[in-house]
Design a protein around this nucleic acid. Sequence first.
DNA 1: TAGATTGTTAATCGATTAACAATC
DNA 2: TAGATTGTTAATCGATTAACAATC
Lengths: 210, 210
Amino acid sequence: MNYVSRQTLERLPVYLRFLKSQCIDGPINTSAKTIAEALSLTEIQVRKDLAAISDGGKPRIGYITKDLINDLEDFLGYKDVNDAIIVGAGKLGKALMSYKGFAEYGLNIVAGFDTSDEAVGTDEEGKPIFHLDRMEELCRRMNIRIGIITAPADYAQRIADKMVKSGILAIWNFAPAHLEVPDNVLVRNENMAASLAVLSKHLSEQLMNS
Amino acid sequence: MNYVSRQTLERLPVYLRFLKSQCIDGPINTSAKTIAEALSLTEIQVRKDLAAISDGGKPRIGYITKDLINDLEDFLGYKDVNDAIIVGAGKLGKALMSYKGFAEYGLNIVAGFDTSDEAVGTDEEGKPIFHLDRMEELCRRMNIRIGIITAPADYAQRIADKMVKSGILAIWNFAPAHLEVPDNVLVRNENMAASLAVLSKHLSEQLMNS
DNA sequence: TAGATTGTTAATCGATTAACAATC
DNA sequence: TAGATTGTTAATCGATTAACAATC
């Protein structure tokens, strides 16, 4: 499979979502132009992205929708299930635990962990919340590779350390904290502050010009 | 104030967070090197970013921590309060409504909206949840400019349209949907599927090489 | 065949990095 | 003064866009 840049990789699920959304009564073929227009991208970019992960479309016809969906799902690994655990069973943590949509992406959150007496021992949509002390053992036993951090920032680094020790290789970090991890471990920050900065900058520019 | 690229803008809150985290007993001065090492960035990048938004540091000394914090907060508008509303009072919506941390960024969620009988009429951390029909009137009356979408994808575009009609200029979209809005309105997608794609790609690469 | 659409090669654009002069 | 650290100008790098040949 070809090399795919970070930017391309992030667009692929967007293409897939669009293709699936039109699939029910959908056209047999879809052109790069159609996709580009629907998603406010350029035709050329869509073609280049798709060239990297599909066997290619046919001139004058476009891509076979069904095959393209298939290729995207293959490449993104949506058909394999990745088990994950989540640390921090506050409101955000519980919201993610009970979100049904992740199944579509092959993400399966198997359990939550916390240290508070209130949370530990309860369930969230049938998913158990254990004490943090039991995390390593469960991760090892179940071969968990993905960890999600929804704990307060002060604990984030310690949790990340614990995750690394438990064999986790990819961390999805919702805490406003920079995490230090070994090279083979990837951290993806869901950086709310960055998003807010972009929103609020746009706002101040808009209001300035009026 | 200088032009600041999207990438720089997204890093600024990270610098600010670091500076604040060390401020209590913190050093009077902070160098670009210190910041870069703490955040796994390069010195040069930090300097260039900071040059755009501060009066500058002093050779051999670095930046005056207190002033730098001040400049960053000014630039990012953390001292002004931006009121916002949120549509979709499910678990994620409620989690965001009750998150105290947004205050630090100058974001103030004033109310939630939903259509379900269960949610409408209730409170979340003292913030009322109204019926969606009342959104436009409240936005107009309170001059709301920021809207947050935490509703199912199927409703996202209709909600966005309603937000635009209500005078909202910046939309923070958590729904897995592409939104069409006028040019003067900015959409920031919190694209979970993109994050998962990056995590899962890393994982498959790591597991392949072992 | 004609023409729409693909994939690729080259050009452009913008962000990051390097080199270096300025200065406390 | 010497040397650490700043800010700026130039070089590099990578992603996007444009141009165009290939083809169904």
